[in-house]
Amino acid sequence: MNRGRLLEILRPLVAVVIGLSLGLLVTLVAGENPIHVLSVLLKSAFGSRYDFGMTLYYATPLIFTGLSVAVAFHAGLFNIGAEGQLTLGALAAAVLGASFAGTPSWIAPILATLAAFLIGGIWGAIPGWLRAKRGSHEVINTIMLNFIAGGIASYLTLYWFRNLETQNPETRPIGPGFAISQWAFFGGAPVSWAFALALLTALAVWVFLWKTVPGYELRAVGQSEGAARVARIDPAKVRILAMAIAGGLAGLVGVGEVLGGAGKFKLGFSPDYGFIGIAVALLGRNRPVGVVAAAILFGALHKGTADLDLETEHVTRDISLVLQALVILCVSAEGLFHLRWLRKKRAAQ
């Protein structure tokens, strides 16, 4: 392994350590012992099969959204819209599952998965098309489409597919054929085959990006639009495709959430999985393997902080957001690592 490659892996690791340390220092302000907080965190995330299962359960949607952001990024696009894409994707899976409840179990999960991918993909393709054909920036468009997706999901859930048996804003439950079985090994944690699907998807994304022609074209457009044009690649087509795939990947969040977890679409089920996906992709250097590792880290943070409410006096699970934010800031702030002595050393060489 050469030095550049090593640094590429080392830098985010150092950033994570610094970010987490800063976050734990913050708990000092609240009068807590950071070491105690850290031990609660570790125990709660990895302490038992159940705990580890929950960590993987939270990591599953983050793998999908992380891959979503990464694919768009390789095409030179910023997908801030994973939140909206996953909302509509999950809703599509739930609506299909509730409307055709009698579908046999050998085909039902596959159909629902395809529906989630398709609807998420269409929602992703819209900002891709707007960028490619109308020149309007995908960052703002995806943010706006997140709100629009939220409105549409809320309308459809409340007016068309509402579960009338509860007061909660959620859709009717999916048919039994649609449910994917959870892994008993994890002692009741809702980690299911959706996690395996997430890993397979990461592999598929790697194959697509680095071993196929369309994947190569996608990365070419991301690296240099001019060069891509010379090679007779149509950047507009590639951008739309990239955003459609990104949207579809985000839509797959619905598989774990609806088919493997709740069995229905709950309004507002996502604690910003889409936004955390940006951090996951960034931390994972936009590589599928890195995304999986980063998603498990963030899943562990999410699960680990859940027990802080009970185990400490002042620190609540909200600290998870602070930790994540500090990790993101440290990873993205490149300049922070170009320390003066390092620069001098380079200049001397």
């Binding site: 957001l321 602070v322 994540q324 800031l329 702030a333 490149e334």
Partner: peptide, 14 residues
């Protein structure tokens, strides 16, 4: 030199 979109998202989470 942090990316402005990424850092902005982080500030919101913070």
């Amino acid at each position: 030199k942090a990316d402005q979109i990424v850092a902005g998202t982080a500030i919101n989470m913070l």
